[in-house]
């Protein structure tokens, strides 16, 4: 062993010692998961890459505003602004600052959306999938046609390589952009040694310029609302192979009163049971429901007409309605139910 290698080993060993107390936590989470959702290696890898790329884009944008627009002269910031040498992710990943429920939930949704897109591409070609977006460009209602064009443009900007989640600052919901931007700003202040106020100003400018309306999710939501309000298209049952994934999710969300994130989350659960309940509540005819299920399923599960038909629609409606309640209420209700169970057990 040469001296360099010795030094590396010593550095790694020290780092490992610092993290050793968390091993039990990590292993416990893997051993005793609290949900039935399983996260495969591809999802983990995609989520990590997505987070790294998103944070890279945020720090690059902040640095560029600081150097180009505000005239801050700093070598590290200039370097990051030019797209090289991003450091924030490394600093933030071990800090716990990225582990907020809001951010992790977003990562999960993006990772699962990537899974769905990959599953869909096993059943329909990328070319055919992209063609679905042009369907509404000639819509009789110019508002719908304009919204369809908006979605087409947003999709074309953000589509990444097949099987990867495209990370785009423009596609971030406002709350997530906000939740990520400030830790990144703090990390940049630490890395550059600059006083925080200048970087804060740059971040405020970046956030103020963020145009949520340009994101694929919002474009899909808006088009979905317009289509569902239009008699000629509102009656057509949504299908991922006819609408494309994001518009399909948005249309189902619109019909069920749930959010797009909830619908995507349902597809990660075993047998997509909550997804089936959602489409039953949204009154999907049996054949459409089976076809939609097959298009999105990734584990060769089969939904039979008998199972779907015998699922009580009224109970599905009641369940979906309860899932559409505010998250804070659902959490509180669950905790109170747990407490009362505990009381009974005493």
């Amino acid at each position: 062993m040469n001296e360099t290698m010795n030094n590396d080993i010593i550095r790694h060993a020290s780092a490992m010692a610092g993290k050793a107390s968390f091993i039990a936590d990590d292993f416990a989470q893997a051993l005793f998961p609290r949900t039935d959702v399983s996260f495969n290696d591809r999802m983990r890898s995609n989520a990590r890459q997505y987070l790294r790329a998103t944070i890279g884009q945020i720090e690059q944008r902040i640095c560029r505003i600081a150097t180009d627009e505000m005239g801050v002269s700093h070598e590290t910031l200039a370097k990051i602004g030019q797209g090289s040498g991003g450091q924030s992710f490394r600093l933030l990943e071990n800090s716990g600052l990225l582990k907020t429920t809001e951010i992790v939930q977003h990562l999960f949704v993006k990772a699962q959306q990537g899974e769905l897109a990959a599953r869909l591409l096993q059943k329909i070609s990328q070319q055919d999938l992209e063609a679905t977006l042009t369907r509404h460009l000639d819509h009789a209602d110019p508002v719908v046609a304009e919204a369809a064009m908006g979605l087409l443009v947003a999709q074309s900007k953000s589509t990444g390589a097949a099987g990867e989640i495209s990370a785009s600052l423009a596609d971030l919901p406002a709350e997530i952009a906000f939740a990520l931007a400030w830790p990144v700003t703090a990390a940049l202040a630490r890395l550059s040694g600059l006083p925080g106020s200048q970087l804060q100003q740059a971040t405020e400018r970046m956030l103020a310029a963020h145009d949520e309306s340009a994101s694929v999710a919002r474009k899909s939501d808006r088009l979905a609302r317009l289509l569902e309000q239009t008699a000629e298209t509102g009656d057509a049952i949504p299908h991922p192979m006819k609408d494309g994934l994001s518009l399909f999710i948005a249309r189902l969300a619109r019909r069920s009163g749930l959010t797009s994130d909830q619908i995507i989350g349902f597809t990660a659960e075993p047998n997509m049971v909550r997804f089936v309940v959602a489409i039953r509540a949204a009154d999907f005819p049996t054949q459409d429901a089976l076809s939609v299920f097959a298009a999105l399923d990734g584990d060769d599960h089969i939904l039979t007409a008998a199972t779907y038909g015998e699922t009580d629609q009224d109970r599905c409606l009641a369940l979906v309605s309860s899932w559409a309640a505010p998250g804070a209420y659902q959490n509180a209700e669950r905790i109170l139910a747990d407490d009362s169970l505990g009381d009974q057990g005493k």
Binding site: F178, L207, A208, H210, E212, R222, Q229
Partner: peptide, 26 residues
């Protein structure tokens, strides 16, 4: 947030329900 939003919204009075798409501009 200090950010511009683009969101759906619903309002209601005793006669009708109003579906809107709202954009805020700070």
């Amino acid at each position: 947030l200090g950010m511009n939003l683009s969101r759906p919204a619903q309002a209601s009075d005793d006669e009708c329900r109003i579906d809107m798409w709202v954009e805020t501009r700070l």
